[in-house]
Design a protein around this nucleic acid. Structure first.
Lengths: 164, 164
DNA sequence: CATAACCTTGACGTTTACGTTATAGTTAGG
DNA sequence: CCTAACTATAACGTAAACGTCAAGGTTATG
């Protein structure tokens, strides 16, 4: 059986996958990087910055990323690329999101109706703050678009005028 | 007459303003920086990168920025902040815009109807390319917003459920 | 005409966000 | 068990986008 280098690599990738007690698949750094479109160096850097600490380390001390970790990395990409935020700003925003998550946890355990309501209201507030950040940029982008559209319309008008 | 330091500065600012043959006001670098919300260093850096070369230099070799220069600087800010473009990318985009402008000039001088039409079509094409860049980011931002909105809706739903 | 407050061109420093290289441990396949 | 291909940390390098002096010229004002 002459296994190609390609096939070997694929085997390696399959071997990359471990599992948590929960049965969730865990990825080694290179595979996590591949799935998120980043590099392993970048993932280590994000960890150094405290942005994404992988779910756990295997016996070999290898980093093992969970599905939640991958989602978080994707989120960082979004915020960085789309909102032009620095990693510092992203960190703050993710902290807010985490507050929301832990708030969700507390919510589950809570039995007091009044407190649960209060927690939900708090979660809504946090998300609104996030939303306003996005909305702000959205509006300004929208204006940029309108400018471009206006230019096109002007040209178009002259064109029809010319060809009348 | 005990002129305050404040007043002196204001005098200086007024003195900053020179005029082109056209009668357009020209600003020295600090005032140009103040108006655009940047620093003089940044403006010099932009010139170094070839992004904004001031309209002219005075006899004193001072940089003098025209209204068009100021607009261009504002444009750079927009593209950098809103689209998260690097100065390189902005340079390319501004080049495209300049093509559009010079095209506009050529258009004015042109008498041949067919050529004028062609030029307009070209201008429209260029603007469309710009537009697609903006639109792309806009769509992805919109998705971010929907995610946030969905989260809010979920919370809101649970809240009404709870308080029913 | 002195002085303050501009301006000039270097040139070196800094932060961010990684890339790259070196050295060494770990794991799967033949 | 040897080798290839992963992994680890550490450390140095780098490009972008400026900040921050330093040394000197220019201009308005008292």
């Amino acid at each position: 059986m002459t296994e190609t280098k390609q096939a070997e690599v694929e085997n390696q990738i399959v071997a990359d996958i471990e599992r948590l007690d929960t049965g969730e698949e865990l990825l080694q750094i290179e595979e996590a990087a591949r799935r998120t479109g980043l590099t392993s160096r970048t993932l280590r850097y994000y960890e150094e910055r405290g942005l994404v600490v992988p779910a756990r380390r295997g016996d070999s001390n290898y980093r093992l990323y969970s599905g939640a970790d991958i989602e978080r990395i994707e989120r960082i990409k979004q915020l960085k690329d789309l909102l032009a935020f620095s990693l510092d700003e992203i960190g703050e925003l993710l902290e807010v999101e985490e507050q929301r998550v832990s708030l969700k946890q507390a919510f589950k355990l809570e039995t007091d109706r009044a407190i649960k309501s209060q927690q939900l209201r708090q979660a809504i507030l946090l998300t609104h703050r996030e939303l306003s950040l996005i909305d702000d940029k959205l509006h300004r982008l929208e204006k940029l678009k309108q400018d471009a559209l206006a230019r096109i319309a002007r040209h178009q008008h002259r064109l029809t005028e010319l060809e009348a």
